[in-house]
């Protein structure tokens, strides 16, 4: 008998992290821990976390971590990485953090081709602050600040960050994944590993966008939210590789 799947040592052994039941933040931090362990990079890595529910993981993860002001993680990571290139630096940001207040920092860091990794969690809502509309909120989706549902003429359209960054020359790798099925979880793990490997190889800016659910603020239970994710979020945000320079003839 052999242990084929064990809990990553990169999260606190006994701690129950504060995410809601079914929240995939937990899944992604599990995957990040597994990849860091597998690649042996934990002792020279640093997390620059944005502001949002993800901050609940700060005490949960066991490697170096800092908090950026809301929206500024890509700028903070620029400073950390450029002044200490030997460290593997990654940001972990929600859709409000990365695509709303931090859109400028995200675009500019991507455009400079900063050699760090961005983990972007897209759940179409502001979680921590209680369900406000985000740049990725779907048309017709209700939010505490769009009580009648998002309307294009008033609130514009959901933003497709991988595709937007794909207009820039510098980014090296952009992939959109999800954690809604075991197969997709494994693809997400692979994407995170690839993004870290790009950084180790000095290839420049990599972003993994992970489409997730927010049961609490979608007003659904975990499994209903999973269905909403598949029937609606994944239609608006199709999964797949948007750019992978390693595949292009170089």
């Amino acid at each position: 008998m052999e242990k084929v799947y064990s809990r990553t040592r990169m999260i606190q052994e006994k701690m129950v992290v504060g995410f809601c039941p079914g929240c995939m933040h937990g899944t992604v931090f599990k995957l990040i821990g597994e990849v860091m362990e597998e690649m042996g990079i934990a002792d020279h890595s640093a997390l620059v976390i944005g502001v949002g529910c993800s901050g609940l993981a700060l005490e949960y993860v066991r490697y170096d971590a800092t908090t950026a002001p809301h929206g500024r993680a890509c700028a903070v990571a620029t400073g950390v990485k450029r002044s200490n290139p030997g460290t593997i630096v990654f940001t972990y940001q929600g859709d409000g953090d990365l695509a709303s207040i931090g859109l400028g920092e995200t675009m500019s860091a991507a455009n400079r081709g900063e050699n760090f990794t961005v983990i972007f969690i897209n759940n179409g809502i502001y979680g921590m602050t209680g369900g406000q509309m985000a740049p990725t909120t779907l048309l017709g989706m209700k939010a505490t600040t769009a009580p009648f549902g998002r309307k294009a003429e008033e609130h514009g359209y959901p933003m497709h960050m991988c595709e937007i960054l794909n207009q820039l020359t510098a980014p090296y790798y952009l992939e959109r994944c999800s954690c809604n099925t075991p197969a997709n979880v494994m693809k997400t793990r692979k994407a995170i590993r690839k993004a870290f490997q790009n950084q180790i190889d000095g290839k420049g800016f990599s972003m993994v966008e992970i489409v997730t659910s927010c049961p609490t603020n979608w007003g659904l239970d975990a499994l209903e939210a999973l269905r909403f994710l598949e029937e609606n979020m994944l239609k608006e945000f199709p999964l797949g590789v948007i750019r992978d320079r390693s595949k292009e003839a170089n």
Partner: peptide, 17 residues
Amino acid sequence: GESEIASINMVYGAGQT
């Protein structure tokens, strides 16, 4: 930096190293 906000945050990042 792309703005003063980005600049101070880069310095906040670099200062932490």
